[in-house]
Computed example of a mutant assay.
Amino acid sequence: MLKQPKYKRVVLKLSGEALAGSQGYGIESEMMTSVAEQVKEVVDLGVEVAIVVGGGNIWRGIAGSAKGIDRATADYMGMLATVMNALALQDALETSGVPTRVQSSINMQQVAEPYIRRRAIRHLEKGRVVIFAAGTGNPYFSTDTTAALRAAEIEAEVILMAKNKVDGVYSADPFKDANAVKFEELTYLDVLNKNLGVMDATASSLCMDNNLPLIVFSITESGNIKRVVLGEKIGTIVKGSVS
């Protein structure tokens, strides 16, 4: 493991489910505090951190659409859920002493800045954590795609995909298949061809086209974000080609 950070600027992708912790829904304060402390460890190393947060712990657009709600409307509801998570995460980070800004793709000036690429980069350069909320601002696009898009826009070196149930990418669901094998390295073509469900096809293609590596790991173990940033090989790395 390196003594110095391997990456200078990262995008941390947090699912809404990760923020729900063991309760499975809503926001678990213990998990929020743990995430904030782990992010602080990385910021203290001098790493610039941007976060894309999901909203599945509150509302999932696809699930709402399946229940008869117009798909675009359901997706906008999901975007608002991500704003709620972003504000909660901002509060936890600032309680931990980390200066934080929330930028929303949907204009809501009373609670968040509008997403402006150059302003986001300037915040990062000043040592502030930037939380990107409300997805891309468009229905039919996931927050995984948002993470890939924002990472490319701000020229991040890697996307860190934090999971709360698994510690990497497996050949099958490890909770359903005892023979599931964990991968150490994969290519984006592997992910697409094997339909591994790491992220949706749009996000995978965007990462592949922009040569953005992705590391999938567990966030439930304290200190894991720091371990990844320092170069420790945990979880699964997905990139353009396997070394």
Rank of each mutant, 00 (worst) to 15 (best):
L2Q: 15
L2I: 07
L2A: 13
P5M: 15
K6W: 05
K8G: 13
R9D: 01
V10Y: 00
V10S: 01
V11K: 07
L12I: 15
K13P: 01
K13L: 03
G16F: 04
A18Y: 04
L19Q: 05
G21I: 06
S22C: 08
S22K: 11
Y25H: 09
G26H: 10
G26F: 11
I27M: 04
E28P: 10
S29P: 07
S29F: 13
S29K: 14
S34D: 12
V35C: 06
K40N: 08
V42S: 02
V42H: 02
V43E: 04
G46E: 07
G46W: 13
E48R: 01
E48H: 01
V49K: 00
A50Q: 02
I51Y: 04
V52E: 02
V52F: 04
G55E: 01
N57D: 14
I58K: 01
W59M: 08
R60D: 01
I62Y: 06
I62P: 15
G64L: 03
S65Q: 12
A66W: 11
K67N: 14
K67M: 14
I69T: 12
D70G: 09
R71W: 04
A72R: 07
A72F: 05
A72K: 10
Y76L: 10
M77K: 05
G78N: 02
M79Y: 00
T82Y: 03
M84C: 09
A88S: 10
E94V: 03
S96F: 06
V98P: 00
P99D: 15
R101T: 13
R101Y: 13
S104E: 03
M108Q: 15
V111G: 10
A112Y: 14
P114Y: 06
R117F: 15
R118A: 12
R118P: 04
R118F: 05
R118D: 14
R122C: 10
E125T: 08
E125K: 13
G127A: 14
V130G: 00
V130N: 00
I131Q: 00
F132E: 02
F132C: 09
A133D: 08
T145M: 08
A148M: 10
R150A: 13
A152N: 15
A152H: 11
A152S: 07
E153M: 14
E155F: 12
V158S: 00
M161V: 07
K163M: 04
K165H: 12
K165D: 13
K165P: 06
V166R: 02
D167N: 12
V169I: 09
Y170I: 07
S171Y: 02
D173M: 10
D173V: 10
D173Y: 12
P174R: 06
K176Y: 04
K176N: 08
D177S: 04
A178H: 12
V181R: 15
K182V: 14
L186V: 01
V191A: 09
L192M: 15
G197C: 09
V198I: 02
V198S: 00
S204T: 13
S205C: 13
L206N: 09
C207R: 01
L214N: 03
I215H: 07
I215W: 09
I215S: 06
I215V: 14
S222P: 03
G223I: 09
V228S: 02
L230I: 07
L230S: 03
G235C: 05
I237C: 12
G240M: 10
S243N: 14
